[in-house]
C-alpha cells in the first residue's frame, strides 16, 4: 500500500536522523536538506538510496537536484511510488 504524505515525511525524518544526526522533529516539509539539515551532496545520495528502499520508488540521479526541501522529496515520492 502506498505511503501517505505524512508517513513519507516521518520516514524521511528517520532517514535524515540516521544519516545526519538531526532530531526527527526538526525535519519538516519546509526544511532544506543542505541549508537546514546538514545533508551535503554526498549525504543526499545516501538519503535518496535509503528513501528508494523504504518507499519502493526509483529516484534517478537527474531528479535528485530538484529535491531541495523535505517537502520536495515527499511530493516526489508520493507521486512516483507504486
Amino acid at each position: 500500500m502506498a505511503a501517505t504524505q505524512e508517513e513519507i515525511v516521518k520516514g524521511l525524518a528517520e532517514i535524515v536522523n540516521e544519516i545526519a544526526g538531526i532530531p526527527t522533529e526538526d525535519v519538516q516539509v519546509d526544511k532544506s536538506f543542505t541549508d537546514d539539515l546538514d545533508v551535503d551532496s554526498l549525504s543526499m545520495v545516501e538519503v535518496v538510496v535509503a528513501a528508494e528502499e523504504r518507499f519502493d520508488v526509483k529516484i534517478p540521479d537527474e531528479d535528485v537536484k530538484n529535491l531541495k526541501t523535505v517537502g520536495d522529496a515527499a511530493d516526489y515520492i508520493l507521486k512516483h511510488q507504486d
Partner: peptide, 10 residues
Amino acid sequence: VRKVSPHTVP
C-alpha cells in the same frame, strides 16, 4: 552498485 557509499572515496 547503488549501495556503495558516496563517502567511499573521501
